[in-house]
């Protein structure tokens, strides 16, 4: 069992990214992990964008992140990269906030043309924050996601690929907790 924190960077109140993360969280809970979701949108935006790391809600996220084993970093793709909102939270974390952690990057976007944003935009930032292992990420096309009151429905092939990436992340976390218990 590992502790996981999921950061989602969509500014939208009806966010696909968030709905997809809830779906992913259910999968991870089923595999014995504890997971908490942090929509960056719920943090005070003025403090985020003016760089106030002492704001209590933001400081609480930094504390939760420090004690987590795995981090999910999810964002819609804006201008071929992660959202500015997500980045404004990352900017307020300690320089090596991801030191020793396993990180899963996830993106949602409207065009397959932006799949590489995971590897050229998300990954360098996560690595620079000291992440020990940034596992395979996944880019989910908006058109394959349907939202309803009951949650989210993802087109079958895309869902299978997403969940296989999530399972890979889960497996790395399980291996680490087993290793930690054995040592």
């Amino acid at each position: 069992m590992a502790r996981i924190l999921a950061l989602t960077g969509s500014p939208s109140a009806t966010s696909r990214t968030e709905a997809v993360i809830e779906h992913v969280a259910a999968r991870l809970r089923g595999q014995g992990h504890r997971i908490a979701l942090v929509p960056v949108r719920d943090l005070p935006p003025g403090a985020l964008l003016s760089g106030d790391a002492t704001q209590p809600d933001i400081a609480a996220v930094a504390d939760a992140l420090a004690s987590a084993d795995g981090i999910i970093v999810a964002s819609p793709v804006f201008k071929a990269s992660y959202s500015g909102l997500l980045k404004s939270l990352l900017d307020l974390l300690p320089q090596f906030a991801l030191d020793g952690k396993v990180v899963l990057p996830l993106a949602t976007g409207g065009s397959l043309a932006h799949v590489l944003a995971i590897d050229y935009a998300f990954r360098p930032v996560l690595n620079s924050m000291g992440a020990e292992h940034v596992v395979q990420g996944y880019f989910l096309l908006n058109q394959l996601v349907t939202m309803s009151e009951r949650g989210v429905t993802i087109e079958a092939d895309a869902e299978a690929r997403l969940l296989s990436v999530v399972d890979g992340f889960s497996e790395v976390l399980h291996r680490r907790t087993r290793l930690a218990a054995a040592s």
């Binding site: 804006f78 990269s81 997500l86 404004s88 990352l90 900017d91 935009a121």
Partner: peptide, 9 residues
């Protein structure tokens, strides 16, 4: 973190 700031983006 090796990129533009959140405010800039």
């Amino acid at each position: 973190t090796a990129s533009y700031s959140g405010l800039f983006k």
